[in-house]
């Protein structure tokens, strides 16, 4: 099973990189760009076949390592 984890900064936590990207896009003439927030995508291959178990394991991985929940939130996508 393949999984994709999205890790992004929590709402309200300042994202200077996102801000810089937005600024650069505006500079390139993309005037319609408003706020930009950036994050990471982590692709994992799992030997687990049970969707429920996989989700639970992934949640655990996010809590323990993949995200720092002081500042980050995460979303899990199974394929």
């Amino acid at each position: 099973m393949k999984a994709r984890v999205f890790v992004t900064l929590k709402n309200g936590v300042l994202d200077p990189q996102g801000k810089a990207i937005g600024h650069a896009l505006n500079g390139l003439g993309f005037a319609s760009v408003g706020e930009v927030r950036q994050g990471k995508v982590i692709d994992l291959e799992l030997s687990e076949t049970d969707t429920g178990k996989a989700k639970a394991a992934l949640k655990d991985m996010c809590e323990k390592l993949l995200a720092n929940t002081v500042i980050e939130k995460y979303e899990i996508e199974l394929k």
């Binding site: 936590v13 200077p16 990189q17 810089a20 720092n68 002081v70």
Partner: peptide
């Protein structure tokens, strides 16, 4: 130490990047 929870908060990318 912040990652481990021994200290509160987190250290993020410098504002100047």
């Amino acid at each position: 130490l912040t990652e481990s929870g021994l200290l509160p908060g987190a250290l993020m990318r410098n504002a100047g990047l």
